[in-house]
C-alpha cells in the first residue's frame, strides 16, 4: 500500500521537475550571456546620470503609462533613423531601471525627443495635445502643472537606484531634493553644485514656465528634454 502511494507521488514530482528543466533551458541559454555583454558593447565613460528631477519625471512617465504608446528604441532600419535619429545603442539605456523600450507606437518614438521641441511646446502639449497638434489622439495631462512634485524622498529613490547599480554618489543622494529644486528654479538656488554633480550639460530652467513651484510638469518636461542626450556614444566624433 505504502509502496504504490510512494510510486505515484514520485511520478508527479518527476513530471514537475522535467517541466522545470525543459522550460528553463531556453531562458538560461539566452539571458545568461547577456550579463557579460559589457565586454562586447560600446562604452561610454562620460555617460551622464538622470538628475533627481529627471528621474522624478521618468517616474511620472512610468506612472502615467506613457510606455504603452511611445517606444524609446530606434531600430536599425533606414526609415527609423531618418525619422527619429541615430539608432539606439545598448549603452544608452544601461542605467534605465526598468528599460522603457516599449512595444507599440500609437505615438512617435521618444528615444531622441530631447531638444526637438521647446519647453513651452511640451508644457502646452501635455496640458492639451490638441492645442498644438489638432489631430493628436494623446490624452490630456493638465493636472501635472497643478500638482506639486514630491521631492522629500528623492534621496531614497537615488539610494534604491544605487542598490541596483546606478553609480549615484553620497553627495548626490544627500542633495537629491535640493538638486531637484535647483534644476527647476534658476537664479535662486545652487546651480553650480548641481552642474558639478551631474555635468555641465545639465539643463537648468523653469521647464513649465512657472518659477514659483516645482511641479510634476517641470519634472516630466525635464525628463523628455534629456531623452537621447545622456550619452555621446552616437555622436560621430573621431570616426
Amino acid at each position: 500500500m505504502f509502496k504504490t502511494h510512494y510510486r505515484i507521488e514520485r511520478k508527479s514530482i518527476t513530471l514537475a521537475i522535467a517541466i522545470i528543466v525543459v522550460a528553463s533551458i531556453g531562458g538560461l541559454m539566452e539571458i545568461a550571456p547577456l550579463f557579460t555583454i559589457d565586454e562586447t558593447v560600446e562604452h561610454d565613460p562620460n555617460m551622464r546620470l538622470y538628475t533627481p528631477l529627471e528621474l522624478a519625471g521618468r517616474n511620472i512617465y512610468i506612472r502615467e503609462g506613457c510606455y504603452a504608446c511611445h517606444s524609446q528604441m530606434i531600430r536599425t532600419l533606414q526609415d527609423e533613423v531618418d525619422r527619429y535619429g541615430p539608432y539606439s545603442l545598448a549603452v544608452e539605456s544601461k542605467y534605465d531601471h526598468p528599460m522603457l523600450w516599449g512595444s507599440k507606437r500609437t505615438g512617435p518614438d521618444l528615444a531622441r525627443v530631447g531638444g526637438k521641441y521647446s519647453d513651452q511646446w511640451h508644457t502646452a502639449h501635455l496640458n492639451n495635445p490638441r492645442d498644438v497638434v489638432p489631430q493628436s489622439i494623446m490624452p490630456r495631462y493638465d493636472w501635472l502643472s497643478q500638482t506639486e512634485l514630491r521631492t522629500q524622498d528623492l534621496g531614497d529613490h537615488l539610494r534604491a537606484q544605487r542598490t541596483v547599480g546606478v553609480p549615484y554618489t553620497d553627495a548626490m543622494i544627500a542633495n537629491a531634493r535640493a538638486d531637484a529644486i535647483a534644476q527647476a528654479s534658476p537664479g535662486d538656488a545652487d546651480e553650480e553644485a548641481l552642474a558639478n554633480r551631474y555635468g555641465k550639460a545639465t539643463q537648468i530652467r523653469t521647464f513649465d514656465g512657472d518659477p514659483r513651484t516645482v511641479s510634476e510638469m517641470d519634472a516630466i518636461v525635464a525628463y523628455l528634454q534629456v531623452l537621447g542626450k545622456l550619452s555621446d556614444a552616437t555622436q560621430p566624433k573621431g570616426k
Binding site: 539566452e30 539571458i31 547577456l34 550579463f35 555583454i37 558593447v41 517616474n59 545598448a90 549603452v91 544608452e92 539605456s93 544601461k94 542605467y95 534605465d96 531601471h97 526598468p98 528599460m99 523600450w101 529613490h157 534604491a160 537606484q161 542598490t163 541596483v164 547599480g165 546606478v166
Partner: peptide, 15 residues
C-alpha cells in the same frame, strides 16, 4: 515604488 534589478538590454530581454 520599486526599481527593477535589471537595466537596459538585460531588462528588455528578461521582460
Amino acid at each position: 515604488k520599486s526599481y527593477s534589478l535589471f537595466a537596459g538590454v538585460q531588462d528588455a530581454m528578461t521582460q
